[in-house]
């Protein structure tokens, strides 16, 4: 009986591991300047899956969050362009974070 439980536990652990692993695609985030004082970022994963609901943070030079939100159903996030240097952080969980420096975001 103990043996069966151990096997069962092993099986479940393996299942959990493989299921988790199935999400290990590369996170993608790309932003552009709309030219009207706003920035739009689009997100996704390398397997084509949606980034809807992924946490988005805009940080100022000191790392302080100035805008926070989530990707929409269309995997988009639009925010007001900060006046100084900034960084956009797409955070889909550990190992799935993309940072886009404001200096790389152009029209």
């Amino acid at each position: 009986m103990k043996k069966i439980l151990i096997y069962l536990f092993g099986f479940l652990a393996a299942l959990f591991f493989f299921t988790t692993y199935a999400f290990a695609h590369t996170p993608l985030c790309s932003c552009y300047d709309n030219g009207d004082g706003t920035i739009t970022c689009e997100g996704g994963f390398s397997d084509g899956s949606s980034a809807a609901g992924v946490s988005m943070t805009v940080q100022d030079k000191s790392g302080k969050a100035v805008t926070e939100g989530r990707m929409t159903e269309d995997s988009e996030f639009t925010f007001k362009k900060p006046s100084g240097d900034y960084m956009v952080v797409f955070d889909a969980g550990p190992g799935h974070v993309v940072e886009v420096p404001g200096s790389e975001i152009t029209e």
Binding site: L28, G44, F45, S46, G48
Partner: peptide
């Protein structure tokens, strides 16, 4: 007569759509 219906695919930031 020749009519070539042509495609080329360009990608931005890796997302396959």
């Amino acid at each position: 007569y020749i009519q070539q219906c042509t495609k080329a695919i360009y990608n931005i930031a890796g997302a396959p759509t």
